[in-house]
Simulated scan of single mutants.
Amino acid sequence: MTNSLSLELGRLATMKPTELRSRWREVYGNVASNVSPDLIRRVIAYRLQEKGLGKLPSHIERELDRLNGKVGTSAPIPSRRGPILPGTRFVREWNGKTIAVTATDSGFEWDNDTYRSLSEIARKVTGAHWSGPRFFGLTAKVP
């Protein structure tokens, strides 16, 4: 990796959200979607690396597209099979806040409390009824 690219990537790590959105406009020529600063940082970093080091070979892009289903769509989320083992961590971003839950022998630990289910945590986080497994991405949305 070139020294200037390394410096640019290092600067991204310390940029504030407004600076990141401004850098996005410089790199992409449009306004960034309403996504987290971390995602903006990663996408800009990818584009800068792509410009500096070259794109992925087309056969690799095709394989990634194949694995992802279709271009522009998400890969289907497989249904969870088997038990959730103690120590498993679930991470979800909600309204700019990262929700990190750890499975324990007695339930699920989040925010210094233990809950019986992921659904209890999802309800507490969102204020609405959610399927906990769906909220944490363990199951796909039923059409």
Rank of each mutant, 00 (worst) to 15 (best):
M1L: 03
N3V: 12
S6Y: 00
S6M: 08
S6K: 07
S6Q: 11
L7V: 10
L7T: 10
L7R: 09
E8W: 00
L9T: 07
R11A: 04
T14H: 08
T14G: 04
M15G: 01
M15Y: 09
K16W: 01
K16R: 08
P17V: 07
L20Y: 01
R21V: 01
R21C: 04
S22T: 09
Y28M: 02
G29Y: 00
G29M: 01
G29H: 00
N30C: 00
N34M: 03
V35G: 02
P37H: 08
P37T: 01
R41F: 01
R41S: 11
R41K: 14
R42Y: 05
R42L: 10
A45S: 09
R47V: 01
Q49Y: 00
E50Y: 03
K51I: 04
L53R: 08
L56N: 09
P57Q: 10
S58W: 10
I60L: 15
I60H: 10
E61Q: 15
E63S: 14
E63R: 15
L64D: 08
D65G: 13
D65W: 15
G69H: 12
S74I: 12
P76V: 15
R81M: 09
I84C: 10
P86D: 12
P86F: 12
P86W: 13
G87K: 08
F90L: 04
V91N: 10
E93D: 13
E93H: 05
N95E: 14
G96A: 05
T102I: 13
A103Y: 09
A103E: 07
D105M: 12
D105P: 11
S106I: 09
G107V: 05
F108Q: 03
W110Y: 15
D111S: 07
D111G: 00
N112M: 06
Y115S: 06
R116S: 15
R116I: 05
L118Q: 02
S119L: 06
A122Q: 04
R123N: 13
K124F: 05
K124P: 00
A128R: 15
A128S: 13
A128Q: 14
H129C: 06
W130M: 12
S131Y: 02
G132T: 02
G132M: 03
A140M: 11
K141F: 09
P143V: 12
P143C: 03
